[in-house]
Design a protein around this nucleic acid. Structure first.
Ligand SMILES: NC(=O)c1ccc[n+]([C@@H]2O[C@H](COP(=O)([O-])OP(=O)(O)OC[C@H]3O[C@@H](n4cnc5c(N)ncnc54)[C@H](O)[C@@H]3O)[C@@H](O)[C@H]2O)c1
Ligand SMILES: NC(=O)c1ccc[n+]([C@@H]2O[C@H](COP(=O)([O-])OP(=O)(O)OC[C@H]3O[C@@H](n4cnc5c(N)ncnc54)[C@H](O)[C@@H]3O)[C@@H](O)[C@H]2O)c1
Lengths: 211, 211
DNA sequence: TACTGGCTGTGAAATGGTTAACAACGTTAT
DNA sequence: ATAACGTTGTTAACCATTTCACAGCCAGTA
């Protein structure tokens, strides 16, 4: 199988979430048409994405919901689940911990790390907070493979370095700085401030008008 | 000026942030080469982006840092600043309020809205929390033009509808549901769970290997 | 002055992603 | 039995964006 494009993976994640809802509502099968409406894309995009991953439907019944769910999960998920570490249990970090703690998922945030002695030792949403010094040891102990960076911008690079040192192969970074990291470590940047500024720009009246 | 592409706007926001740092460090002028390194893009991409917005540098000195900063801000920012409302002052909403409150910016979150009577009336990070019923009135009072949605997924559509009703022209949505909204309202979706799942997928060993 | 080097600005090509168009195929209705 | 319909799977065209390649320019230097 050749590599699945980035954008396709993003849509597959969306499809899965929508299909899970459909499944609990008892829907057995679904047309590209319907899934597309839910996901806000065109039907042909859905069909192409499913073609990309090699999943087939029937012209009469569409795609089997449960089968497609399992198939997508087989592509997206690590068998046995994924263990994540969160670095920086501040305002945002704690919000993320309580959020990810809630949902059942194959991804689990199993440990948090900080430098603040007031925070170290606390248990936030069922997740213990360790001294950042222990990252290497705990990562090995828990089998952590991905890291979440929610430290101040000035600390983000060193936090990312520590995570890579500890053996993670993917990083989710909330600090508004581009991280310089080995190319075999996959990075996703979530830049909330940039997203807000983007909304502000395109919400400007003049961005719509004109030749 | 024809419309500036979405991706270019995103990079301009990044450039501006990096240039601000350079400016305070006393850098007067910068080459596409250097800005590209900071932003993790190629030099030609920087030059093309600046060409797109009509900003010129000199082959000998590069681009003037302060001039470029002002020029980019003139494109990105609403003259007079942008006022935002946050709907849903829960875990994430409060983290965002305290974060955006901190930085000085042309974008200000001037009011929060919730349904929880324990939250209504509180002041979070200098921002008062009102009953969601008051949204229309307060939006007019404060001149709010963009909205931030941090309510539970089930409430996201109605929160967005209320914001549109109140006259906002852009929405930043953190709920993991695609919003169905008038096409003249600009939406940016920040899907944190999807970002995490994406990291988990691409961090899988087998996503790198193979023909 | 004439030459060299390194940079900007930009047409043109390449890349990556989306959409149109349609053949193939079950299902249903006649 | 077969014609009509609606859907999937897929090729090819299309579009947006990135990248290449190079002309033009300025500053410094012999
Ligand atoms: N809070 C938000 O809503 C928000 C929005 C956009 C971006 N961000 C970004 O997310 C990051 C965190 O924001 P926040 O509001 O949670 O900040 P915060 O100050 O509340 O939390 C940061 C935490 O990181 C810890 N820390 C500092 N250095 C560390 C290190 N080297 N190793 C481990 N832990 C360390 C601190 O002790 C603190 O607990 C920042 O980079 C910020 O720019 C936050
Ligand atoms: N917390 C996170 O880290 C995180 C991560 C990813 C996504 N999200 C998404 O962000 C959203 C908020 O998450 P959270 O953790 O802050 O949830 P939360 O439950 O802590 O906060 C939600 C807030 O919205 C308020 N609310 C509910 N209905 C409302 C309505 N109709 N109008 C106004 N306010 C209303 C509630 O009273 C509550 O204060 C959710 O959609 C969630 O899926 C959160």
């Amino acid at each position: 199988m050749t590599k699945i494009p980035d954008r396709t993976i993003e849509r597959l994640i969306t499809y899965r979430r929508l299909l899970q809802k459909q499944a609990v509502e008892g829907v057995i099968s679904i047309y590209s048409h319907d899934l597309a409406t839910l996901a806000h894309v065109k039907p042909v995009q859905v069909r192409r994405d499913l073609m990309e991953i090699g999943f087939s439907g029937s012209p009469s019944k569409g795609y089997g919901v449960q089968g497609l769910l399992d198939y997508i999960s087989g592509i997206l998920d690590m068998p046995g689940g994924t263990k994540a570490a969160l670095v920086g249990a501040g305002n945002l970090g704690r919000a993320l911990l309580s959020y990810f703690n809630g949902r059942s998922s194959t991804i689990n945030v199993v440990a948090a790390f900080d430098v603040d002695t007031n925070i170290i030792g606390r248990v936030i949403a069922g997740c213990r907070c360790y001294d950042i010094q222990e990252l290497g040891a705990r990562a090995k102990e828990f089998g952590i493979t991905i890291g979440i960076v929610t430290v101040p911008a000035t600390q983000a690079q060193s936090a990312a370095d520590a995570l890579v040192e500890a053996g993670v192969t993917g990083i989710l970074n909330f600090a508004p700085v581009p991280l310089r990291i080995r190319p075999d470590v996959y990075i996703v940047q979530v830049d909330i401030t940039r997203a807000l500024e983007k909304v502000a720009h395109f919400a400007k009246p003049q961005s719509a008008k004109e030749v």
